[in-house]
């Protein structure tokens, strides 16, 4: 199955409840206040958030007025377009032609960082790159072993130190190792941390600075891993992590569940941080590049 199809299937499967409602919503009938209200509710129920839902509905109203749309089906196409436009308005981060190119994965506890690191390692290795994984979570019990198993499955090297060691010192060494081993891509896992914890965010900022000091221009891609089931708190997460180390994109993990991940629209809207990948399962190949049009379609179409 192509990545795109895989992405669509998993979205379609998970969106059934959502889609059913929209199906009836858009199916037939005139465009009236009740229609807009239901629409707003549907968006809210997909974690889009009240403010952003209202904003999207307002945009839709305006577009409907401008284009003299009368049918709900037409309105649906307009809304898909609006969401697609919103979600593709930013530049999607690509890895610079750097060698080694350094990717750093950050996020709150349990969002899917370590698994996503393994998935990315697998992706790049399949592209023929020499990949190095860095077991940057020296804090959580058996986090290093977890990534070690994954690195074996992905067939890539792992840089690790003792549990409890200083993560920025580890990253410093990892940058040297990457240069010495002539790695193309370095993927750094980090410990989960709640964005509201000052000291932990400071520690992350230190990792960021140490990496940059040892390898000017690095890290080249900092990705925030967000659990698709997360509600409004994800915006606060993105805000804080973005302050600590300038995010380039998101990985929306666990999109294979029933959650719709609508919160990424808020994040894109407020912070202009695009979604780079979506996680669609627990296996190493369950990662797909994000596609705005697919996302919008899958959200509003069955």
């Amino acid at each position: 199955m192509s990545l795109l199809n895989q992405f669509k299937t998993s979205l379609a499967r998970s969106k059934s409840g959502f889609v059913d409602r929209l199906g009836s919503l858009f199916g037939s009938g005139e465009i009236n206040d009740e229609f807009f209200e239901e629409l707003e509710e549907t968006l809210v129920s997909g974690d889009v958030g009240v403010q952003t839902s209202l904003k999207l509905v307002d945009q839709l109203r305006e577009a409907i007025g401008n284009q003299k749309v009368k049918e709900r089906e037409e309105a649906r196409k307009l809304l898909i377009q609006i969401i697609t436009d919103t979600m593709s308005s930013g530049e999607n981060s690509t890895l610079a032609d750097q060698k080694p190119a350094v990717i750093l994965l950050v996020g709150v506890n349990g969002s899917g960082k370590t698994t996503s690191a393994a998935k990315l390692a697998n992706l790049y290795r399949q592209q023929g790159k020499k990949v190095l994984l860095v077991a940057g979570d020296t804090f959580r019990a058996a986090a290093i072993e977890q990534l070690e198993i994954w690195s074996g499955r992905a067939g890539v090297d792992l840089i690790k130190q003792e549990p409890g060691s200083d993560p920025s010192a580890l990253f410093f060494d990892a940058m040297n190792a990457a240069k010495a081993r002539d790695a193309d891509v370095v993927i750094g896992d980090t410990a989960g941390r709640l964005h509201s914890k000052y000291n932990l965010m400071k520690e992350l900022n230190k990792i960021y600075r140490v990496v940059g000091r040892n390898l000017p221009g690095a890290p080249h891609q900092v990705l925030l891993v967000v659990d698709a089931t997360t509600g409004q708190n994800a915006v606060a997460q993105a805000r804080s992590f973005n302050e600590a180390l300038a995010l380039d994109g998101l990985i929306l993990a666990k999109l294979d569940g029933t959650a719709r991940g609508g919160i990424v629209i808020n994040i894109q809207d407020e912070l202009e941080i695009p979604v780079s990948y979506v996680g669609t399962g627990e296996k190493i190949e369950d990662l797909a590049p994000f596609n705005a049009a697919d996302f919008a379609h899958a959200l509003l179409e069955d």
């Binding site: 974690d47 089931t229 509600g231 959650a259």
Partner: peptide, 10 residues
Amino acid sequence: DAMTGQDAVN
């Protein structure tokens, strides 16, 4: 997870 959104009910 206390950060779960609308999907918590499902």
